[in-house]
Every structure is written in C-alpha cells, then in structure tokens.
Design a protein around this nucleic acid. Structure first.
Lengths: 150, 150
DNA sequence: TACTAATATTCAGCATACTGAAAATAAGCA
DNA sequence: TGCTTATTTTCAGTATGCTGAATATTAGTA
C-alpha cells in the first residue's frame, strides 16, 4: 500500500477515469463525450440559455464551454444565435438532430450508471450517492467551476 | 433537478474537480499538480522503475506518463537513465531536490484530504472511502489505465 | 453625456488523458 | 541465424479543464 493509494483524491480520480471509460464504451456508436452530453442535455431541457448559464450548470469553465459547444455545433446538434437584448451573449438551442440524439441516449446512459454502481447493493448505492452528493455540495465553492442552481 | 445532476458520473467528475482545486490551492507555493505528485511520490518510494511500471501504479496511460515525467525532469526533481539490461526502457530516480520536495509535501497533502472530507464525520468518512475503494477496485479493468499492484 | 466598471465570449497558452501509429529494442521460435 | 512477435517509449492528433488577457457590449455613475 503506497501513500498514493491512501489519498482520497487518487481514488476519486480513478473512479472518474472509470466513469468516463464506461461512458465512452456505452456511447461508442454515438461518438459522444461526457461534457458534450452534459451540455446537450442542458440545452435540450433549457433552450435559449447563454453559455455562462450552461457552464454554471454543467460545472464547466467558460473556455471549456466554448470548445465543447463548437464541436456540438459543428456536428449539427445545436445552433447558437446572438441574444436579441444582449449582443454579448450567445443563446443555444438544440437542432432536431440534437433532440433526436438526446432521445436515443437514454438507454446507454442508464447502463453506464448501472455498470458503475454494480459492485454495490441497493442500500450501499444509496449511502454512497448520498455521501458523494454531500461532499460535492459542501465543497462546491472550492471548485473552479462551482455549480449554480439558481 | 436536472437529468445531469442525477447521474453518478457527473457527481464524480465534480468531486474530482474539487479535489484538484484543493490540491492546487494547498500546494500553490510548490507549483505541483496531482499527477506530477503521484509520479514523484512513486519514484521516491520505488527508485529505478521504468515508465510502464509507473503508469500502471499511478493509473496514467503511457503517453501521459511521458509528458508528466518530461516536466518533472525539466524541473530537476527526477532523472531518467536507460535501463542497463533493456535499452528500450528508461528508469526513473529522484534527485536530491525531488526527495526534498517530497519531504516538504506531507503537511499540505494531509490538509487536502482533511478539507475534502470535512463535511463528513469520522464514521461517514470511513464508509465513503470503503465504498469508493470497492467501486474502484471492482471496476479497475473498465479503466483505460487499470492499476496493477503486482 | 462621458467615463468607468461589469459582463459574455473568445484567444493564447499550459497540463492532463486518451488513441493509433511509428521507432527502437528484445524475446521467441523455426 | 533469420523471422516474427512482443515490449517500451515517443510522436501526432483530439478533447477536456484551467488561467490570464483581449474584445465587444452593456450597465452604472459622476
């Protein structure tokens, strides 16, 4: 047992690596990444929001949002237009292809969580997710891209 | 509550972001990153291993190991030399500066874990880390950079 | 109104984290 | 020995995830 293995941050990084790998495997035929899915999901549920709003919901900084949206736009899954009353901002909308994409993603996404948590029984999953959520919420402001729910 | 917030992978990514931010904050005066620390820690504890071994312990793929070691070497914290009996491999060793660096890092590192887990009491921390470790170990082979302890 | 501050996005740059391919070396085998 | 395969590292390329600076626009204020 090394010092590294004993650090919570190392275990958290590994579980993140695993969850990304499972995501890429389950959505391989759709050629998607977790942040791309996150933003597309938000845009489909909340059309017409600007990029700052998206970043504060997806926990992505402004620059990463720009890059991910560029790729979603290039693939024709979203479109952007300048906000009518604020020409600084660009509002995002799902295209029909983007909406269809979201509809087709439900089953693969459910499998990701199922596989990730499969080592735990139902009670353990509930405990783990509850503690995980408490750690994330309580430390939200420590992150460089804190989430704003308002 | 959006679909995104309900996905375990999203919460895991956020906790990873938080742990990285805490790491960078606590080690700001040392100008270090988590993977740089991970590899330096392994090299200090196990001098003379090759890069493949390091990657399989630190959960980093071969290319990432190369890049991180390049930066550690440029800073004078490690040195690399061709393996005497296997000229494909390059063995890594800590420099005196690297060993000194590791010694000075103990206190900041302890503060990172403390701050990260501070929202939980002692019993909850134990439960969370236990479940986290089970998830990581059981899903180890799902990762693109699985850990080998042997 | 003119000046200043704030906001939204983008650009340049750096550090992970990965894939596939290439290069060098070593090992196994007919 | 000669050929094939495996191993170790590096290179090229892509996608996050971040900082600081620049640009454009808007809001606030003297």
């Amino acid at each position: 047992m090394d010092q590294l293995e004993a650090m919570p941050g190392f275990l958290i990084r590994r579980l993140w690596q695993i969850s990304v790998a499972l995501f890429l495997e389950e959505t391989a035929m759709m050629d998607m990444t977790p942040p791309q899915f996150g933003l597309l999901s938000l845009i489909a549920a909340h059309p017409g929001q600007d990029q700052t709003w998206l970043g504060s919901r997806a926990a992505l900084d402004r620059t990463t949002v720009t890059g991910v949206l560029d790729r979603l736009e290039a693939r024709g899954l979203i479109r952007r237009e300048v906000a009518p009353h604020n020409r600084r901002a660009r509002l995002t909308f799902p295209t029909p292809e983007g909406a269809d994409f979201m509809a087709r993603s439900e089953e693969p996404l459910a499998r990701i969580s199922e596989r990730l948590l499969s080592p735990l029984d139902a009670g353990e999953r509930h405990v783990f997710l509850g503690l995980l959520r408490r750690l994330v919420d309580a430390n939200n402001d420590q992150s460089r891209a804190p989430v704003k729910t308002i």
